[in-house]
């Protein structure tokens, strides 16, 4: 219901991609232009590699080709490009990078969709909101740190056999499931104008927490047992860097690969903090 707009948006892009795909021919050469960096504090540079495209090729298969034969398009011997990846099925979130200017997973990025003709160029950059480790690999520790800020877990009494969990309506399960498909990829953070690079971990607790964490706070506030920590979560989100730091640019929901209603989650947290603040004011604590 809430993601109709996003889906319409996604399907328009999908239609364009499908049209490109029809014209694309395997065996063609395309250029992969990569923003490289040898390590933290090192200067960045562009390198271009020429890659022969096989059927169904994606950005990952291009990077694999380059790793095996790291020679740039002008014939210079270089080093294999470093990148982060895992499942290659768009469920682990590891291979997120900026492709042709937009953040997304590289595994689900088909070359036919983005560089359909001979000699096309596809541009890869590391995410800009996290410190670069090397080349396309960035350090997303802050993203996980922010899950601790919102206490994104259910406070169970240990792993002993203590019977079933709370019963839940199918409707609530469907809502929670979508929220729970967040794979911590960081697309929402990369596209957010309010979330900016912060290499100093000491500043993480007061910098913007990000849409992914707000969504997790909502997810656990909605769970029967998780709700018992709602107050703590809201307290954390009412401070500096909390929900109020959201600027409502709403890019997050448009780039989320899992179509999670992030802006809805932000508003739910907004409402909860409003109520929480009034309750606290009147309860005299």
């Amino acid at each position: 219901m809430t993601s109709t707009h996003t889906q319409a948006h996604a399907s328009a892009a999908a239609r364009k991609a499908a049209a490109n795909r029809v014209n694309a021919k395997p065996g063609r050469k395309v250029f992969v232009r990569i923003l490289r960096c040898d390590g933290p504090g090192q200067p960045s540079r562009w390198e271009t590699f020429s890659v022969t495209i096989e059927r169904g090729a994606n950005v990952i298969s291009c990077l694999q080709q380059i790793a095996a034969n790291p020679i740039t398009s002008d014939g210079t011997r270089s080093t294999p490009v470093v990148w982060d990846s895992g499942c290659l099925e768009e469920v682990c979130g590891a291979c997120t990078m900026v492709i042709n200017g937009k953040v997304r997973q590289s595994c689900s990025c088909l070359i036919d969709d983005h560089a359909p003709t001979e000699g096309d160029t596809i541009t890869l950059e590391p995410m800009s909101k996290f410190p670069v480790v090397r080349d396309l690999w960035v350090d997303r520790s802050r993203l996980f740190h922010n899950l601790k800020r919102v206490k994104a877990w259910v406070p169970i009494d240990g792993t002993y056999a203590l019977g079933p969990g709370p019963s839940e309506s199918a409707e609530s399960q469907e809502q929670r499931y979508v929220m729970s498909t967040c794979m911590s990829c960081g697309c929402c953070l990369e596209a957010c104008p309010q979330f900016n690079v912060e290499p100093d971990p000491a500043a993480w607790d007061t910098a913007f927490v990000g849409a992914h964490a707000l969504n997790q706070a909502r997810l656990f506030n909605q769970h029967e047992t998780g709700r018992r920590m709602k107050g703590e979560r809201l307290d954390a989100l009412m401070g500096t860097g909390g929900v109020n730091d959201c600027g409502n640019a709403q890019n997050c929901v448009k780039v989320c690969p899992k179509l999670i209603p992030l802006t809805e989650s932000i508003a739910v947290i907004g409402r909860a903090t409003t109520i929480h603040a009034f309750a606290r004011w009147f309860s005299g604590k």
Binding site: G101, K102, A191, P193, G247, A249, Q250, N251, V255
Partner: peptide, 19 residues
């Protein structure tokens, strides 16, 4: 001052309104 506009890359209408 805490924000950094990025309408060049993400030219969505809501992002333009943010800016």
């Amino acid at each position: 001052r805490s924000g950094k506009a990025n309408t060049a890359r993400y030219a969505y209408q809501s992002n333009w309104r943010y800016r």
